[in-house]
Design a protein around this nucleic acid. Structure first.
Lengths: 226, 226
DNA sequence: CGCGGCTTTGATGTTCATCAAGTAAAGTGG
DNA sequence: CCACTTTACTTGATGAACATCAAAGCCGCG
């Protein structure tokens, strides 16, 4: 399981900036792990001493609201630093991270990462940029979703999985209807209602969790219109 | 106007970590400026080559949505790095920043800041932490607001200005009713309606933009209840 | 003085959550 | 492997929360 980081095919642009000796040290300070679908990587309140890098799979970042219901903050995909949100500001995770597909994760000791940042100026700039992008992405997405009507949100989420995650007009939803509601702020019933509506209007085909986009232009129009 | 950074009374914890010669260089690479209420510091699309640090006053970070309406993302207060959101990930600002009170700002050249980050490892960690906090704060606030009913949102915003910004149960709102709506996602009419309701119920006093909290416990209850 | 922007209140309609009820699917224990 | 329980999915009916529309008063400003 333990691959040398020098040859890691997944090594992101971030770690490409490291010097050879640093990359070698990285090999010694990381571990790798597979999490199965619905397995928890970290829980809200867990102490932060590692840094998770998603190589393969899909995870959700979520948190229980004061209403007692679960809310999904974002979906992370391969090459994302999935613990970026909590790692520098708090001693404990503010969110729970759960695999929504079988996921292959690279785990780096936080002490080592901090050392790298302190010693390698270029690397620290790269991390700053990546972090800024990650956060901006989340804020922009949440902003967009909260300004859409239900039909627009469903259109958005279908296009998100089709274009951003699976790069295919036909794909299997990694989330239940309830989870989709938790992600885009609507009730399970309405998720189903609007999916059915799109099916009746021949915008998509639905077969359980398999979604196929028939009229992508319409979805894009609805998504933009809000 | 140009004060040496060594003696700057506003110098935040961030810059306290600098070495003496770096602090001196900071003096040479910064300028200071006063923006009057409703004056724009930067506009969406402006190129990012400076870093703004708010010494005194209050600014809003906002952006035009696809609906053509303005939306306020967050309010920044003294000691905040107000351009933190765009500065590392994009060549242009994604948001507009406008003073909502007369504001005193310290402007640092971005080149110099990048140099500091590369050369001073401790400083780069401090910036990472500050950035993480800023972003987390925004995400948590937006999350909280979007999960509240209108009355809860108004209660929240009154408490926000009272407790976080002005530290006083009586204060002058720096925002118009419309802007409050833009900040907490509701229409101007409903902002007014619920403020009036709170006034009738003797929860607050209103005199134009002057708000005085009478029943703070009730506000806290409503704010928490959602 | 008149115009536009801010504030206020009331009436109306739409969007959406909630409630209810039923079917299908999936996990659990004997 | 089957009965049992739970969880996911689905549809319809109802009502609450909220946006929109309309109208009027107020104030600052050219």
């Amino acid at each position: 399981m333990d691959i040398n980081c020098e040859n890691c095919e997944f090594r992101s642009l971030i770690f490409d900036g490291l010097k050879d000796d640093e990359t070698h040290l990285l090999s010694l300070n990381k571990s790798e792990k597979i999490y199965l679908k619905s397995e928890k990587l970290v829980g809200e309140g867990n102490s932060v001493n590692e840094f998770f890098y998603l190589k393969k799979g899909l995870v959700k970042l979520h948190k229980i609201g004061k209403d007692g219901k679960d809310h999904i903050i974002s979906i992370a995909q391969p090459n994302d630093f999935i613990s970026l949100l909590s790692v520098f500001s708090k001693p404990e995770y503010e969110y729970t991270i759960t695999a929504i597909e079988d996921s292959f994760v690279c785990i780096i000791k936080l002490d080592f990462l901090n050392k790298l940042i302190k010693e390698n100026g270029e690397f620290s700039i790269t991390i700053l940029k990546k972090m800024s992008e990650t956060y901006n992405n989340i804020i922009n997405t949440r902003f967009m979703i909260s300004n859409k009507h239900l039909r627009g949100r469903i259109a958005y989420i279908i296009l998100f999985f089709s274009e951003i995650i699976y790069n295919n007009t036909k794909f299997e939803l990694p989330l239940s209807r309830r989870e989709i509601g938790e992600l885009i702020n609507m009730t399970t019933e309405n998720v189903i209602r609007i999916l059915s509506e799109f099916r009746k209007d021949k915008v998509i085909n639905i077969d359980g969790k398999i979604i196929e986009i028939i009229n992508g232009d319409f979805l894009k129009k609805i998504c933009l219109a809000g």
